[in-house]
Simulated assay, not measured.
Amino acid sequence: MAEQLISLSEFWSLRDHFPLIDARSEGEFEQSQIPGSINIPILNNPERVVVGTLYKEKGSEEATIKGFELVGPRFHLILKDVLKLFPQKKVIIYCWRGGMRSQILSWLLTMVGFEVYRLKGGYKTYRTYSFDLVRKDWNLLVLGGKTGTGKTRLLQKLQEVGEQIIDLEGLANHKGSSFGSIGQPAQPTVEQFENIFAEALRKQNPAKSIWIENESRKIGRLILPDKFYHQMLAAPLIDILKTDQERIDLIAEEYACLPTDELILAVLRLKKRLGGLRTSQAIVAIVEGNHSDWISNMLIYYDKAYTFDLDKHAEGKTIQLDLSGIDPDSSIKKLLDAKTKFNGKHTNTTD
């Protein structure tokens, strides 16, 4: 069967129906890829360097011949792998620019009866789209609150009642503190984070508000795009309040079950900010299983950090909302009421 070259707009409608193959090298794939792709390298990392160098020095014809020389002996192995993985024989494929590597793979697969859709412009086209999307203007509504106020849980509840949300910490595999990586999968690269982020934004209606948790510019080792971060700072913010005990209880629920050695390492990462005495006290409390004590100790630091970050937010665009002692459903109702106040330009209030 012949291949069909598809545009990015056509790709969106087809991706849910067919498997997606990335024909680039392992290194390129590890750096970033279209989410959901499976890597079938036509040229591996060393071979890609050889062909790329030859292309620069002697041109495309020499590079193409060399590419076939390198990959030719593996054609049968590639076909066996793809046939095993995709017995339905229908796939979408891409490489960096939609050039030689995806063309070779497409040719191979059509030889054994595959229905192939090849992305025009390759990964570069997709990456340009995702890069631009996370830097567009968005209608944001920021959910703020000190550590332990349950912002992520509230976002999830808001989504359940039909509100648009983006869970940045979920996308980043990090909860945004020294303790935030414990029990989480490895963080993606910055480029892959933007791809995942763009996929989430693409599902949103830009005419409606998108709830997002208040974050610093860095989430673990990932950095938010400057324009998006500045939009967060300029957006309306609902600063939720909970009692200290509620916050301690929630943090204990999420972190007390984690490995003691990882909790201690997280405290040690904050030693310069906490000081020697408070660091030692927190470690002793962790070892003794006195979770209330070490969490209270950490909150002294994190509360100061939150106040510092809150001061960066646009003046006149904050509602403070006390959710102490109320159930999740009532909390959501109060949040939606606060959203209505913002839409009516009612700001700088305390509920």
Rank of each mutant, 00 (worst) to 15 (best):
E10V: 00
E10P: 06
E10K: 02
F11A: 02
W12M: 06
S13K: 14
S13F: 08
L14W: 01
L14A: 00
L14P: 03
R15C: 04
R15N: 09
R15P: 06
R15D: 05
D16T: 13
D16H: 13
H17T: 10
L20N: 04
D22G: 04
A23D: 06
A23R: 04
R24F: 06
R24Q: 00
E26F: 10
G27Q: 11
G27A: 13
E28S: 10
F29R: 06
E30L: 15
E30Q: 15
G36C: 05
I38G: 09
N39A: 01
I40R: 04
P41S: 00
I42Q: 01
L43P: 03
L43C: 05
L43H: 02
N44M: 04
E47A: 00
R48G: 02
V49W: 13
V49R: 15
V51R: 08
G52I: 09
G52L: 07
G52H: 02
T53M: 11
Y55V: 05
K56S: 08
K56G: 10
E57Q: 15
K58P: 06
S60R: 15
S60A: 15
E61T: 14
E61F: 14
E61N: 13
E61P: 00
E62D: 14
E62P: 02
E62T: 12
E62M: 14
A63I: 09
A63G: 02
T64G: 07
T64S: 11
I65L: 14
I65P: 02
I65T: 12
K66E: 10
G67T: 09
F68A: 05
L70A: 03
L70G: 06
G72N: 11
R74W: 10
F75D: 03
L77Q: 15
L77F: 14
I78N: 01
L79T: 01
L79Q: 09
D81K: 15
D81I: 11
V82N: 06
V82L: 00
L83T: 10
L83P: 00
K84V: 12
K84L: 13
K84C: 12
L85G: 07
L85N: 00
F86A: 06
F86S: 03
P87K: 08
K89N: 03
K89R: 12
K89Y: 09
K89G: 07
K90C: 03
K90Y: 05
